[in-house]
Amino acid sequence: MLNAIVPLVVDGLANAALIFFVAVGLTLVFSVLRILNVAHGSFYSIGAYVAATIGLWLVSSGLNPWLSFPALLLAAALVAALMGPLIERTLIHWTYGKGEAVQILVTFGLFLILEDLQRIVFGVRSIYADTPMALLGVSEIGGIIYLNYQLLLIGLAVVVLIGLRLFIRHTRYGKLISAVVEDREVSEALGINTRRIFMLAFTLGVFLAALGGALATPTTGVAPGLGAETMVLAFAVAAIAGLGQVEGAAVAAVIVGIARVLAIYYFPALDAVAPYLVMLAVLVIWPYGLFGSTSTRRI
């Protein structure tokens, strides 16, 4: 019994870890900038493509294969540094204070542009770069076999969750972000350069999504369509949690991750829709999500 359930749970949690990175970025951007970025999932797939490209290059170059681990992080940082500020300044910036319709149109346009860009730069084939997974191997505990890379993913998600909370609560920029989330006008009048905070939060959101994508390459590879698929998943997670909830996103990611694996193992036909069935069920009972509220804005 346990031998059947534990691997399933680990599978679900590893899956949840990847969705968590994207969803928490989506939620962060929503809280600070007050826009729902429909193109957010594309940063996941771009992170995945860049990581896979660097990974394959590392293998072919004959360098130390363990370098593929820092390369995953580097890929995410690269995507965030190059795309975050640029996209926020040139495009997202125009949607501030506009209605939801404008925001969705602009970010959907961005999504289409980014999808085409990926096809032009990375082609249309699937890419696998699983060196990190192969390097870490498996471990056997009590007769159960674990993929060490999956355990690493789960651990990293926990580290990012705690790190993000500590960052928001205890660092200068984190506190400025909290203030802007709650009251951007007063924040500005107290000397906070809110434009800079928007750019920073957007870039951090891009980084988290790209990190999710980079970390996913060794397990799932990357193929066209990944961005859209991820976007919908991340949105389901954020909606289940309540938009703007950091810890809530982690809980919701676990729920969705486990639901997906359960579906894959027991009701394969429901695999693709399982996350949305969960989302519907939650929203019917809690319209603002499990942890969302209508009163104060906070992160």
């Binding site: 506190k175 203030a179 906070i192 104060t296």
Partner: peptide
């Protein structure tokens, strides 16, 4: 800022 303490509110600027 409701989740900041009084002193954190004072120190925000």
């Amino acid at each position: 800022i409701s989740e900041f303490s009084v002193e954190e509110n004072l120190l925000l600027p």
